[in-house]
Design a protein around this nucleic acid. Structure first.
Lengths: 211, 211
DNA sequence: TTTTGTGAACTAGTTCACAGCT
DNA sequence: AGCTGTGAACTAGTTCACAAAA
C-alpha cells in the first residue's frame, strides 16, 4: 500500500460524503471519476484491493462504501491528536474545524514556554507543558502528533514524541526527521511547496501546447 | 519536469544552505546523499538536467550550486504572495517566518469580512478587502496566492484569484480546485494527511519485518 | 446491459553501474 | 583516484481493455 493510495482513499471518502449529503445512494466508479476528476480504473483497483465492495451492473452503495473506507482508514475509532508547538501555526491547527469534523480529537497543545502553559486556544484546547507529553499520551491515548515547532527544535521534539509512544507524526517543520522504522512521518513543507510553485512560474510549463 | 523533481530541488537548496552555514565549500553527491538521506544518483540526475554544475573528481561548489538552484527555482527575483482568507490559518501563514526567510514577501491578507479589513497581523501584514485583490495583484506584482478559506468558498475565491491574474496557488482548503491549464495549483490537504496517517496506524505497516 | 474486478500494457520514476573527465 | 553525467535496468504507479457477474 503506497502513500499515494492511502491519500486517494481519503479523497474517495470525502467524495462519498459529498454524494451522501446530496442524497445519492449508489455510484459507479465512472460517475465518481467524472464528478471528481479521478480515474475510474484506479478507483476500482484501489477499492478492490481491500475487498469486493461493488456490485456489477450497479456500482457502489455510497453508505456502505463510506463505512468500509472509514474502517480501512482506521477512522472507526476515536483518534486523539496532540499538537506540539503553541505558536501561530500550532494554534491555527488546534482550531482547524476540518479535524474535528472528520472525527479527530485535539487532545492538547504542548509547549515549553512556561507563560503559555495553562492558557488555551480560542476553541478551548488547553496548552500543556511539553514535559508532560508522555503522561498525557498514555493517559488520553494520543496516537498522532502534529509537529509545529521551529525547524531548529523539530528533531528534538520528534524524539520526545517517539519516546512518549507516538507512532504517527504530521510534520510542519522544515526538513526531514529521523525516526525509528515503526513510526510514520508525513511532512508538510511549506517552503518546498512555495518554491516548487515558484519553479512553475519561472518556467511556465503547465500545459505547454504547440512546440 | 515532474513535481517530485522540483520539490527535491528545493530540498537540495535547503541542504546547501545548511552546508554553507557550516563553512563547507564543496560537496559530492555522495556526501550530500549520506548527510541528508537522499540518493546520490538522483541528485546528479536532477542537477544534470539543468546543466553541468559539477566538477569531476571534486563534486559541486556549494555557493555556485546554491546560486544555480535559486535561479532554476525562480528565486532570483522578489516573489510576492497574497494570502486569501484572514482566519486562524491565514494569519499563521502570514506570519510564518520560513516564507520571509526564503525570500518570499507576503504582500497582504485578503478577506471579505468588513470588520477584519484594515487590521493587520502580528507581524504587520495588512488585511485588505478581497474585492481589491485584482488591483493589488496588478499594482504589487503578486504572483502566488495562498488559499486559506473554508472549503465551501474555496472554488469561488480561486476563480477570483485566477481572474486577477494569479498563475500559482497554494491551496490549504480541502478538495481540489478547477482552474485553467496555465494556472498551477499545489494542494496541502490536512484532512487527507491525517487520515493517511490514521491508515498507517491502523495497519502498522511501516517496516514490516519477518512474514 | 451495465459495471465491477483484474491481468496485461504502458508510463513514470528511481537506482545501478560505468565511461569519461579532472 | 575521485566524482560527475548518463544510458540501461529496474521498480512503482497508472491506465487499458475485457471476461465474468448481476
Amino acid at each position: 500500500m503506497s502513500e499515494l493510495t492511502t491519500n486517494r482513499l481519503s479523497v474517495y471518502l470525502r467524495c462519498l460524503t459529498e454524494l451522501e449529503s446530496q442524497g445519492i445512494r449508489t455510484v459507479s466508479s465512472q460517475s465518481l471519476a467524472e464528478q471528481f476528476h479521478l480515474n475510474a480504473a484506479q478507483i476500482r483497483k484501489d477499492l478492490a484491493y481491500f475487498g469486493e465492495f461493488g456490485v456489477r451492473g450497479v456500482g457502489y452503495y455510497v453508505r456502505d462504501l463510506k463505512r468500509h473506507l472509514r474502517q480501512i482508514l482506521g477512522l472507526d475509532r476515536r483518534l486523539r491528536v496532540a499538537i506540539l508547538g503553541a505558536g501561530n501555526l500550532g494554534f491555527a491547527l488546534a482550531d482547524y474545524p476540518g479535524f474535528r469534523q472528520e472525527g479527530f480529537e485535539i487532545a492538547a497543545l504542548f509547549d515549553n514556554q512556561r507563560e503559555k502553559v495553562g492558557q488555551q486556544s480560542r476553541s478551548g484546547v488547553p496548552i500543556l507543558d511539553i514535559a508532560d507529553l508522555r503522561k498525557v499520551v498514555k493517559r488520553d491515548g494520543v496516537s498522532i502528533a502534529v509537529l509545529a515547532v521551529p525547524g531548529s527544535s523539530a528533531q528534538q521534539v520528534a524524539d520526545l514524541a517517539v519516546a512518549s509512544g507516538i507512532k504517527a507524526i504530521l510534520n510542519f517543520s522544515p526538513g526531514s526527521l529521523q525516526v525509528p522504522d515503526d513510526v510514520k512521518v508525513k511532512g508538510v513543507d511549506l517552503t518546498v511547496s512555495l518554491e516548487s510553485l515558484s519553479f512553475f512560474l519561472a518556467h511556465g510549463d503547465v500545459a505547454e501546447q504547440t512546440e
